[in-house]
Amino acid sequence: MAEPQPLRVQDRLAFLLALVPYLLDNDGVSVAQAANHFGVSAQRIRDAVELIAVSGVPGETKAYQPGDLFDIDWDRLEERDEIAITHQVAIDDSPRFSAREAAALIAGLQYIAALPANADRETVATLTAKLTRAANGAPAAVAVEGGTDTRLGQVQEAVAAGTVLVFDYLNGREEREERAVEPLRVESVDESWYLRAWDRSRRALRTFRLDRMRDVRSSPDATPERPEDIELPERIFQPSKQDRSVTIEIAEAALPLLADYLGDRPHTEPARRGWVRTRLRIAHLHGLKRLVAGRAGLLVVVDPADARAAVHEWAAAGLARYEQRPTR
């Protein structure tokens, strides 16, 4: 687990409140073990322990006398890097969840429940009941009906086993070809499923939509060809140097719907009332025409001319199918 970046003071407080009961239950635990358990750096554990060791309650004298403070075995910490609390005040048990924390976990559970070989409905129901009881306040009702894909089980197994997958793939340029890949990670974004993998023929990382794969089969070949130090970037969609740029006008209200393509804060210029003009980076016109045709009345390509023509041709061809055909 990566260290979460900017830590808010609430996160720091939550960490201290979580760490104390753990240390009490695991007397003499090593700094390394605690860091591993919480998924944080050893330094963060040491900093927290040093703060806990000088904290406490005002006490009767309201002067934080030694008996009012936590204490630890300092020699043991310095010599053996082990943590032993020798005096404890005020807390001994883990804190409850906030209603919102419980709600987030419950919704996340429902989402992953759609996966094969994961959580069945019963497990989700048991855990939901536990989390509800463990929360302070009723969790806000947030529910998720996860989608699934018939290829998911097989792909997931190949990722876990590290075997090569071979399948027919229809790429974004409307070309179908056989691909042999070393699967690295299955990712989802809401209802869509993706496989991120090392593509053997391209010798590069590629992202595949599961619903564009056909005839998926596992190959017994498990010898990786990919470079050892390969790292998956966090973002699924990576801009490429070959991308071209088109000018579009978009209804302002529709901007968040294009965040995947434009980023969270695209540079825009005012256009007609309620609309803005901006630049969109695209890999090719095949993707653009689909993007625009699916957003009628919200998105218009301004230039270049070949991009406008591609969109026009696509929509007109779609329309022609209805006009050629006698109504049933």
Binding site: S94, P95, S98, E101
Partner: peptide, 14 residues
Amino acid sequence: GESRRALMKLRSLG
């Protein structure tokens, strides 16, 4: 943020 904190509390149980 909520999920991250919920995980810390779970870790607390050891």
